[in-house]
Design a protein around this nucleic acid. Structure first.
Lengths: 193, 193
DNA sequence: CTACTGTGCGACATCAGTGTCGCATATTGA
DNA sequence: TCAATATGCGACACTGATGTCGCACAGTAG
């Protein structure tokens, strides 16, 4: 579907995807990981990685593209242009939590995006997020005094923090979404009722 | 004062500190930066780095220790055990923003802390932060339904996001503290007045 | 069952980064 | 001013990671 090599067999496609997922996952946690590390995580031989990707740079670039697509799809499936802004924001948080590894990989080190990926003017996550935020601000649901891009970055930061909590076993995948949403909406101050 | 080599001359001390600061700053933004990159940022020759640190590992370890100390000092100067919890939290945010590079260096890649630094049970930033959060929760100022450690991570995440905004020139150092505090306290939802 | 595709294995060459070294020069402190 | 300290420079050796290659075997599709 999204693979540039759509004439690939199912077997090759699966191997390629396993390598890309492993690359994002391993590099998200250790930027200096070797090709051997990635191959191990993908459960293939190092030479197999070379059969799919010309070199290390090629692999990382492909992993960046793949991650951008995975995040884009997850965000699209959240359908944030529909429904009340607060509900849509909650679906957005879930969508991001579902692609936690890719987010950590893409944004954990700004060098990755600068060297391998989309250039700054093109925002990897699509404008619909900013649209949602602006819609919510117009509706009086989101704080109009906060810059929409800042809100977007806050969202990512909290999702990121949530993913790390889950990774460390300090929070369940089930409870993290609620906690992230609660903190995103209310902050840490006790909300007067 | 805190340098293990207190018999060092002022010149040597200054050179050592320049290298450590450059290490934290450069590695915060590019985990795979070389010793040559760090030396360039410190405005010394690469061989000079070797005169101060046995090898790359030694330098990174020293940079971790130095960063932990710098953050600890900044947090200590915030005097968060004094005054109302909300005020103390604001000073804490400022304290963290003041050591932004070190935070990005230490926590931008979990591998750094795991391999070079303090082990998990010893929390690099001191317990007083958790004490402050619990104090605020007891006083009804902070949300008692949020885990104190989660609140601490949220604080770091937002500080981190703020530092990146400043780095990208999208926010001034002056306004970032207010924005971080506002978002930390209120979240993104419009707060009813 | 067979032919084709895909992969593991391991050896080998290359290369970027690191670590070492000695010398000349710059800087600093007495 | 001079001696001691600090540093830049660049050459060189070493090391780990990468990239290439060919062969044998595993897996898959017809």
């Amino acid at each position: 579907m999204d693979s540039p090599r759509t004439t690939e067999t199912g077997t090759r496609n699966r191997t390629r995807r396993a390598i890309l997922r492993a690359a994002a996952s391993v590099l998200a946690r250790q930027r200096t990981a070797t090709l051997a590390d990635i191959a191990r995580a993908a459960e293939v031989n190092r030479s197999t990685v070379h059969r799919y990707f010309a070199d290390r740079d090629d692999l990382i670039r492909a992993a960046v593209d793949d991650s951008v697509e995975a995040i884009g799809r997850s965000v699209e499936e959240a359908g944030i242009h529909e429904g009340p802004a607060a509900e849509a924001m909650r679906r957005l948080v879930l969508a991001h939590l579902n692609v936690g590894d890719r987010l950590m990989f893409l944004f954990g080190d700004r060098h990755t995006m600068r060297r391998y990926g989309v250039v700054e003017p093109e925002k990897p996550p699509p404008d619909p997020m900013i649209d949602l935020i602006e819609r919510g601000q117009a509706d009086g649901v989101f704080d109009p005094d906060l810059d929409p891009q800042w809100i977007q970055h806050v969202l990512w930061s909290l999702v990121y923090a949530g993913i790390e909590e889950v990774d460390r076993g300090r929070m369940s995948r089930h409870s993290v979404a609620a906690t992230v949403v609660r903190t995103l909406e209310n902050g840490i101050r006790t909300r007067p009722r």
